[in-house]
Simulated assay, not measured.
Amino acid sequence: MASSPRVTLTDVAAAAGVGVSTASRALRGRGDLSAETRARVLAAAERLGHSRAGERRGRPRSGTSLLFDLVLGHFHDPYTDEVTAGARTAAARLNYDLVLTAERETPGDDWPVRIRSRGSAGVVLGLMVPTATQLAVLRDADIPVVLLDPWADSSLPIPSVRTTDRAGGIDAAEHLVAQGARRFIVVGGAPSYRYGRARVEGFASTVRRLLPDAPLVRAQADWSAAGARRACNAALSALRRQEGDGPVGLFACSDEMAAGTYRSAADAGLVIPRDMMVVGFDDVRGARWLRPALTTVRQPIREMAASAIHALAAYAQGEPLEPSITELPTRLVARGSTRPELSVGASV
């Protein structure tokens, strides 16, 4: 419904079942209110077409703060550590502070209201896609949003930064074929996010193009090392029942899952890389610590986070923020897990 000056704060309060002062605090992003109350007031205001033109909308009197928010569902794993490092470094170089904001797994989570309250200059949303209501809270306060590696494509007009996931899967397949693999396993992630599907599709289609008759087993794991170990155990059993021989080439959609397949190889008495060659995806620090060191598709995680921060800073300087997709290229990094000449031990 279009905004109308006839809709007053009193109307919004009545529709939400709260007092006028409570409605005012909710709309301004102020006060100690529950997430459910804030959400109810904001929904009533949107439904009635209440205009808050001229109000502070939770922003500081002196204008937008020199800070950006990085919103993630969780922190402190190898991937999000890289995201945080890249965003923090870029923000500091641009004389901005970086606030780490957690998306809580509760229906009434009010992270957009919390961000609006501190007058953030912009928001990077990592590995997520906001709802229309969440985005409206930020846009109503003229706080720009950039998506970083979203788990799905959004129908909302939001700029995003990501990497060339499908191309990375293609590179992994071409590398394994060139190294002599003739049987293949691809371990995808569950849930099957956008980037995981692209990696698996790129890998599988390339194997089929280069070696149409080669056995190829698809497996899924819950994006964890333990899950990948179980999935790889089952995939190896399925591969043994198919015709064909030669080294196994395995592609896992993350380095953490690739680490789990190392344990699976040990379970089966296989030697990496002689019996099974492994390629991961991400190139986080742990990839170098595996023995043998993991061949992986490097996605430029820090650079992606920095790109999102630079886009927000440019918007703060008056440049437009177009709802376009920015893709930074992947690069395959070959290490010991796909170099048979480095392997030791007896074959099974």
Results as ranks from 00 to 15, higher is better:
D171A: 15
A172Q: 09
A172N: 07
A173R: 06
E174P: 04
E174S: 09
H175E: 06
H175A: 12
H175D: 14
H175N: 13
V177H: 06
A178N: 13
Q179Y: 07
G180I: 08
G180M: 05
A181P: 03
A181F: 01
A181D: 03
A181M: 09
A181C: 14
A181E: 08
R182T: 14
R183Y: 10
R183V: 07
R183I: 13
F184P: 03
F184Q: 05
F184L: 14
I185P: 00
I185W: 03
I185R: 02
V186W: 02
V186C: 10
V187C: 10
V187Y: 01
A190I: 09
P191V: 05
S192G: 06
S192I: 02
S192A: 15
Y193K: 03
Y193P: 00
Y193D: 04
R194I: 11
R194D: 05
Y195R: 04
Y195M: 13
Y195E: 10
Y195Q: 13
Y195H: 15
Y195P: 04
G196P: 09
R197N: 10
A198I: 03
A198S: 13
R199L: 03
V200C: 05
A204S: 15
A204C: 15
S205V: 07
T206M: 06
T206L: 07
T206Q: 09
R208N: 08
R208H: 11
R208F: 07
R208K: 10
R209I: 03
R209Y: 01
R209T: 13
L210P: 05
L211K: 14
P212R: 11
D213S: 14
D213I: 06
A214M: 11
A214I: 10
P215G: 12
L216S: 03
V217K: 06
V217G: 00
R218N: 08
R218D: 08
R218K: 09
R218H: 14
A219S: 09
A219D: 06
Q220M: 10
Q220Y: 05
Q220H: 12
A221C: 15
D222G: 08
W223C: 09
W223L: 13
W223N: 04
S224A: 15
S224W: 08
S224M: 11
A225I: 08
A225L: 05
A226W: 02
A226P: 03
A226Q: 06
A226E: 13
G227W: 08
A228F: 02
A228G: 10
R229Q: 08
R229I: 02
R230A: 04
A231P: 05
C232P: 00
N233F: 03
N233E: 12
A235T: 00
S237Q: 14
S237M: 13
A238K: 04
L239C: 02
L239H: 00
L239I: 01
R240F: 01
R240S: 10
R240E: 11
R241Q: 11
R241I: 00
R241F: 00
